[in-house]
Design a protein around this nucleic acid. Structure first.
Length: 434
RNA sequence: UCCUCGGUAGCUCAAUGGUGGAGCAUCCGGCUGUUAACCGGAGGGUUGCAGGUUCGAGUCCUGCCCGGGGAGCCA
């Protein structure tokens, strides 16, 4: 008599059938003789009706009417198309089994402050919107793997504990490593990917990165996830072509497979539909000119902040590449422009709608002498980079790669304001709980 | 690190230097289709902490603690 255990996202395939839903009580309403239980199971939400009559007497209705929110339960009933029900389908309940009653649930149906929600992040992820964001994140991750694997890339996992800075400038989280002194949480897997691309040709890592900078903006976390592909024999332009194809693929896949989540987030999908290659390309020099035309006091040699990035991105209807930055404001490993050694063969990709930089990429220095000079100029510890220099001794070749910030990309696609909602458990300067 | 805003009931917020309230949540009652349901009733407070000014401080002053927003830095 009891029906098949079905997930809510598949309910529409069971119209007229008896099924069982296992989940949690998301909300409830009652009207004396009818009790409405809104049940969620992680795949969706469905309204269950319990009516006075054959299956429920007045006593039992009273019990279910008072069931605390987030209680775990199993409901059995018949799937019915119902215009009045949110989602178009509802469950005509015949039996409810209480798995566990909940304590009074802290997150309620009305307003909450950011502070309160962040303090209860472990519960907040149950909510409809947060659930939608994290489902889209999952899709982004899967689409990245699908895209790169189909193009012959090999996933190579980088170490998280590292002996020294990849880029010298940024601050690292340090910890004691037995008798070997300090170790640091990785701020980038790039240098290891450069080693790996000389072994496998095309490689990528999708891993956490850590920055101990005291950044306090909606675009920063101390722990974030980064995709870092690295390709042997790719020049800086091959690199950009790969980036625009990847970003377009990710966005189109989310549009194709996560429509419902985008609706929950009330994301205007029109700007996303436009995300197709090729992306516009402007030089650093052109970017400076745009800013000056817009009245910004930008000088050649300045780096761009969030406001500047927004102004530049507003000129275009899709992500825009900015290439050929001054070498002085970029990392030590970037290949100089052969026509002007003050510039490097790099690119930043700025997302539309003010979401800022989502990719930083470049061709890498492959000449041993030049790289040694750069390491010295940046006062980096030569011993720590011995293995990295080896890559330029044994069959060195031009190669390129980039880093894509997962949370910034997810936040942009979802249209959410702050990237802390784009990761399940954000780590920020003033928050490490829960 | 700097700038800025804030901390009052479980939550979101009110309260001219003069008896700390409301909505939601909780508990009790009502309602035959609710849509953040609705209607009636009840309980619920060391106003972040420590000093100070004052006849009197949630309110003014000083310090500290904890958060929010932003800058720099970066993905």
């Amino acid at each position: 008599m009891s029906g098949e255990w079905v997930s809510i996202e598949n309910l529409k395939n069971y119209e007229g059938k008896d099924v069982e839903i296992r989940g949690w009580l998301a909300n409830r309403r009652s009207s004396g003789k009818v009790v409405f239980l809104i049940v969620r199971d992680g795949t969706g939400f469905v309204q269950t009706t319990l009516s006075l009559g054959e299956y429920f007497d007045k006593e039992s209705l009273k019990t279910w009417e008072r069931l605390p929110l987030e209680s775990a339960l199993i409901v059995e009933g018949k799937v019915r198309r119902e215009e009045r029900a949110p989602g178009g389908y509802e469950l005509e309940g015949r039996k409810v089994t209480l798995v566990s009653s909940s304590d009074e649930y802290p997150i309620q149906k009305k307003d909450h402050s950011v502070e309160f929600l962040m303090e209860n992040r472990h519960l907040w992820i149950r909510s409809r919107r947060q659930n939608a964001v994290l489902r889209i994140r999952n899709q982004v991750m899967m689409s990245i793997h699908e895209f790169l694997q189909a193009r012959g890339f090999t996933l190579i996992d980088p170490p998280i504990l590292t002996p020294a800075a990849c880029e010298g400038t940024t601050t690292l989280f340090a910890l004691d490593y037995f008798d070997l002194g300090k170790a640091y949480l990785s701020q980038s897997g790039q240098l290891y990917m450069e080693a790996a691309c000389m072994a496998f040709g095309k490689v990528y890592c999708l891993a956490p990165a850590f920055r101990a900078e005291k950044s306090k903006t909606r675009r920063h976390l101390t722990e974030f996830w980064m995709l870092e592909p690295e390709m042997a024999f790719y020049d800086w332009q091959d690199n950009m072509r790969l980036q625009e194809e990847l970003v377009s693929f990710i966005v189109q896949e989310v549009l194709r497979k996560k429509r419902r989540e985008l609706e929950i987030l009330e994301r205007d999908t029109a700007p996303l539909e436009r995300i197709q290659p090729p992306f516009p390309r402007i030089s650093y020099q052109e970017a400076i000119e745009i800013l000056q035309r817009k009245g910004f006091p930008a000088q050649w040699g300045d780096d761009f902040g969030g406001d500047e990035e927004s102004v530049i991105s507003q000129e275009f209807d899709r992500p825009v590449f900015i290439h050929h930055y001054p070498a002085a404001i970029k990392a030590f490993y970037m290949e100089p422009d052969p026509e002007n050694p003050d510039l490097v063969l790099n690119d930043d990709l700025i997302a539309p709608e003010g979401y800022g930089e989502i990719i930083g990429g470049s061709e890498r220095i492959h000449d041993l002498t030049l790289l040694e000079r750069r390491i010295a100029e940046h006062h980096l510890p030569r011993e720590a980079f011995a293995w990295y220099l080896d890559l330029r001794r044994y069959g060195t070749c031009p190669h390129s790669g980039f880093g894509l910030g997962i949370e910034r990309t997810v936040a942009w696609i979802c249209g959410i304001h702050h990237i802390r909602e784009a990761i399940p458990f954000p780590r920020q300067i003033y928050r490490i709980y829960p």
